[in-house]
């Protein structure tokens, strides 16, 4: 079937094509070998990473790069832990030097317990990063007006939350996610909130270009198995979106012909 395989149905961001519509985080795993195995099973081509000080007391400790090769996966450095535009720009300038690329994930969060995107700070940081030559994929609230404004500023992808980070509650406001998708000319990714494979499939059925998952895989009983499930969920959701679902009916409609019955 033409276009059936993920590789024939790529999505594009910042001039790069990705066959996999599942982007995975590399945080919260119990160890680096599990991280590597889960990412392999997910089929992801893009992974988010954080930028932190090296541990000077243990300089030979294994590094993420030794397990998740930047030659194989597109690293998407994030701004986790940054609460100001200045911190975000500084962090990503370091990431750009470490990795040598401009594609980044901007997230400026408010305080716990919501960790909700701090949108005024996000706008400020997005403006500063775009001015500095970064290609910004931006984590944001599920607000269609804010999403449109981020796109108009020059963000290369819009990434509204499905539910609070790490909550695993699934897409809580599908109406707004759908409005964001319908109004966007850049890729839209649901980032945060996916808890299990049905959540990922549901997000894709709404018409998202891709889904970003971290906790749901890393905190699953078997992360490698869940990574594979997420891959299947994303693929199923994408195919269902492309196929176009049947109309919803409020009354039953028999599946077998009502004619030609024996008498």
């Amino acid at each position: 079937m033409d276009g059936f395989l993920a590789k024939d149905d790529a999505w594009h961001v910042a001039g790069r094509a990705f066959g996999s519509r599942l982007v995975v985080g590399t945080g919260k795993y119990k160890d680096l070998p599990t991280t590597a195995a889960a990412i392999e099973a997910s089929g992801a081509e893009m992974v988010t990473v954080a930028v932190r000080r090296v541990n000077l007391s243990d300089p030979k400790a294994p590094m993420l790069q030794d397990y998740v090769s930047p030659a194989r996966y597109t690293y998407l450095p994030n701004t986790a832990g940054c609460f100001t535009a200045d911190d975000a720009v500084r962090t990503l300038r370091l990431a750009r030097e470490a990795g040598g690329w401009n594609l980044v994930k901007l997230e400026v969060l408010g305080p716990a317990p919501t960790l909700y995107p701090d949108m005024p700070a996000t706008f400020e940081a997005a403006a500063a990063l775009i001015k500095d030559g970064f290609e910004v994929m931006v984590y944001c609230s599920d607000d269609p007006i804010a999403a449109k404004r981020l796109e108009e500023m020059g963000c290369v992808a819009i990434m509204p939350l499905g539910a609070p980070i790490g909550s695993g509650l699934g897409v809580q406001n599908p109406l707004m996610i759908q409005m964001i998708i319908e109004n966007a000319k850049v890729p839209v990714l649901v980032d945060a909130g996916v808890g299990t494979a049905t959540d990922a499939a549901f997000a894709m059925e709404l018409g998202c270009d891709a889904v970003l998952v971290n906790s749901a895989i890393a905190h699953a009983g078997d992360p490698v198995l869940m990574a594979r499930a997420m891959r299947a969920g994303v693929e199923a959701g994408r195919l269902a979106f492309r196929a176009g679902r049947m109309p919803r009916r409020t009354q039953a409609n028999p599946s077998s012909p009502t004619t030609g019955l024996i008498r």
Binding site: G25, T26, G27, K28, Y29, L32, T35, T48, V49, A50, V51, R52, R53, V54, L56, M63, L64, Q65, P70, Y75, P77, N78, A80, L94, A95, A98, G99, I165, L212, N214, S215
Partner: peptide
Amino acid sequence: LEIVHFIGGG
């Protein structure tokens, strides 16, 4: 000086 590297993150 700040010396950083990539670590796991979401």
